[in-house]
Nucleic acid binder design. Sequence first.
DNA 1: CTGTTAGCGCTTTCAG
DNA 2: CTGAAAGCGCTAACAG
Lengths: 342, 342
Amino acid sequence: MTAAPPRRRASGRVTLDDVARAADVSPITVSRALRGERAVDPALVARVREAADRLGYVPDPAARALASRRSTHVAVLIPMLSNALFVDLIEAVQRTLRPAGYQALIGVTHYDDTEEAVLLREQLLHRPAGLLVTGIDRPAATRSLIAQAGVPCVHMMDLAPADAGLYSVGMSQAEAGAAMTRHLLARGHRRVAFAAAQLDPRTLQRLQGWRRELTAAGLYEPTLEWLNPAPSSIALGGRMFEQVIGQRPSIDAVFFCNDDLAQGALLAAVRHGIRVPDDIAIAGFNDLTGSDQMVPPLTTVRTPRAEVGAAASVMLLALMRGEHVERPVVDLGFELVPRGSV
Amino acid sequence: MTAAPPRRRASGRVTLDDVARAADVSPITVSRALRGERAVDPALVARVREAADRLGYVPDPAARALASRRSTHVAVLIPMLSNALFVDLIEAVQRTLRPAGYQALIGVTHYDDTEEAVLLREQLLHRPAGLLVTGIDRPAATRSLIAQAGVPCVHMMDLAPADAGLYSVGMSQAEAGAAMTRHLLARGHRRVAFAAAQLDPRTLQRLQGWRRELTAAGLYEPTLEWLNPAPSSIALGGRMFEQVIGQRPSIDAVFFCNDDLAQGALLAAVRHGIRVPDDIAIAGFNDLTGSDQMVPPLTTVRTPRAEVGAAASVMLLALMRGEHVERPVVDLGFELVPRGSV
DNA sequence: CTGTTAGCGCTTTCAG
DNA sequence: CTGAAAGCGCTAACAG
């Protein structure tokens, strides 16, 4: 009785075994040599490397994921791609993760907690090696989903409390809001409105910063708050600005929570022949593309999103290697950018 | 000599075998029932489904990819995330692919053929189930890389020649460029410049459309072309506009290849006190966010990128299922949007 | 229509 | 420091 003829599904692909045979070592040694895991004789490593290069060997991610229960994917959750802020963030993340052999899986939550939870669950099935999420505030269920996943996670664009046991790279949104408010006050503005859309957690923190400073100056009034849960956009900024000047002509400055709103306001001002900053000052947030080209150029706060994306990725890379991270909370600060609109 | 005791690495995960045991069928039947592949007795399907649901079974993508040599990933290659056009495209792609169980792997080429080839090679290692790329024109090496990959591919935002054997969903960039040019001529403009940045293939096709119409009208002159290979941006649009009016005051209209350039030009015009369209008309392309808010509102061409993303994904879905696609080339057209700037 | 068997290509576990 | 054996969880191939 001879054994049934082997029916191979030969893929034509160069496998670890091929390399092992070529280098005359066992497959596991190839695996270890190539991954740099455990100590392997330098001479063997060189031989294996040479053979792998010669044969054009490339590890199969699926096989690797199956055997190790860990993929080369990093799930990245951001609220919105149409906010240029997150495009810069994503670009930096990709630029850092790719050379290290990781693939970013981008999930867009549309600022929706439920959608974020769904995306998270989906991504977790793919056994990502790491997780990059935007912000700290989220429902307890989602927080524990992340904690239970057993996957390292770094939070971006905000700072976790030091005792939360979370990793985060970002800046204080409240401080940034406060800084711009102080700038407006320092420039002599007294009735400083705060106009916001979307109302996501970070926006609300900026609102807190504004409130704090205005209250400290004895200038706070609830009627100075213009909050709109609709998605932020240039068009909405124009409409909100028209509301403000129509309903409260005494307001002499508007601090918009995002540059797109402020840009829309600036354009509306041009349309209505309102002089900025003489009639009214306008400030934005994030220093998005085009803000420096507005007429007048928009005073804003530059947020270090590219730096955040890069630093968060570097931190995640360390965590994925199982390394200890000295500073789990990294504050990258912000920069007030005074231009002509204030 | 007894065999070594089985050392299970029990992952705690519910596997296909668990479901098979619970439903009292063989694993392969579970596999087939759940995938709807091949005919399986409806009664068995129901039993398997019930067991799977009860146990909370979720297939492991890595195991599936390894065994079938096909993942649930779709590689999506776009030139740039900072062009809002592609954000809309990506959003539509994700919205179509995700419910069908596919994950979009986004690769950004930065309008670079080499980077595109590198990304393609990387993605192909992950054995994507499908491929979505931007545009038709690319080096022969990259084209054959795609052809050799044995993975269905749909091209977006441009139309392949009918006999190329390629799948594409988009619109004629040249026709769109021509249409805007005719509009400018119809509005009485005679010295119509074409200003472009980036100079990617689709931009150059729009240039061709403009050339054709201007030549037909006997108005073509090489000095009317303002081509700049730098990345497109609002700031660059402003600078290019200043060049045009500084060096060729006789030009009475500028057709920008993208809205961000045109927006920058419009802002520069406000800055310089140039009246648009009285002194000079300005036209854009793509109808990006904010174009309708400019002063005056920007005349542009609306490109159906969301529709393209959705239709291309639907076509790819069919191809991935191995279905025959009736119309491999789908022209979704474009729409001239006359506003105040012309 | 259902099952058996043999892998996919890699890494883990346990020894040496 | 190196290796042998045993899967990871699933599907392709080949029967029946």
